[in-house]
C-alpha cells in the first residue's frame, strides 16, 4: 500500500544492478515500508542510463524519474557512474529550460547495504512528486 494517501502516480526508477537494485532488495528483505508508486527498471550500470530514457519516460506518462547507481568510486565497472554523473547533471539543468520541474527528476547513489537510505529516498521522492502532482494532468483530463 502506498504511504502517501492520494491517487497513485507513475514514478520510474532506473537502478543499477550491482548497488541500488541490491539496496532496494535489502529494503524489501528487511520489510521496510515503501510507497508503491515506483516502477523499477534494472540496468547493468547507471552509465547505461541514457538521458533520453528519462526524457522519454517523462514525455510518455511518467510523473517522476529516479536514477540510482553505485557510489562514486564504487562502480562495478570502475567508471560507469562517473560518466552518468556528468550526463545526469546536464539533464537536471536542461529540464527546467524545457518547462519541466527539475524536482521531478532525482539521481542519487545507494549501495547494496543501504536499505534504509533506499527507503528514505523513495519515500521522500514519492512525497515530493505527489506535492508536484501529475505531470500530464491536462492531457489526461481531455483525452
Amino acid at each position: 500500500m502506498s504511504d502517501v494517501a492520494a491517487r497513485e502516480l507513475r514514478i520510474v526508477g532506473f537502478l543499477c544492478n550491482w548497488c541500488s537494485y541490491g539496496g532496494a532488495d535489502t529494503a524489501g528483505v528487511s520489510r521496510f515500508k515503501q510507497p508503491t508508486d515506483l516502477r523499477i527498471i534494472r540496468v547493468p550500470c547507471s552509465g547505461r542510463v541514457d538521458p533520453l530514457f528519462i526524457v522519454k519516460a517523462l514525455l510518455n506518462g511518467a510523473d517522476g524519474v529516479l536514477v540510482s547507481g553505485c557510489h562514486p568510486r564504487d562502480c562495478h565497472y570502475t567508471d560507469g557512474n562517473f560518466y552518468a554523473r556528468r550526463r545526469l547533471e546536464m539533464l537536471k539543468r536542461l529540464l527546467p529550460f524545457l518547462g519541466i520541474d527539475e524536482r521531478r527528476f532525482h539521481y542519487t547513489w545507494i549501495s547494496a547495504s543501504e536499505g534504509g537510505k533506499w527507503q528514505q529516498t523513495v519515500t521522500d521522492f514519492t512525497k515530493r512528486v505527489h506535492e508536484l502532482g501529475p505531470l500530464h494532468a491536462k492531457k489526461e483530463a481531455t483525452p
Binding site: P72, F82, Y83, R86, E89
Partner: peptide, 18 residues
Amino acid sequence: PPLYTFKVDEVTIKEHKI
C-alpha cells in the same frame, strides 16, 4: 568533449538532496 570524459572528484557537481 565533457561528456566523453570525467573527473573522479567533480567539484562543480553538488549532490542533490530531496
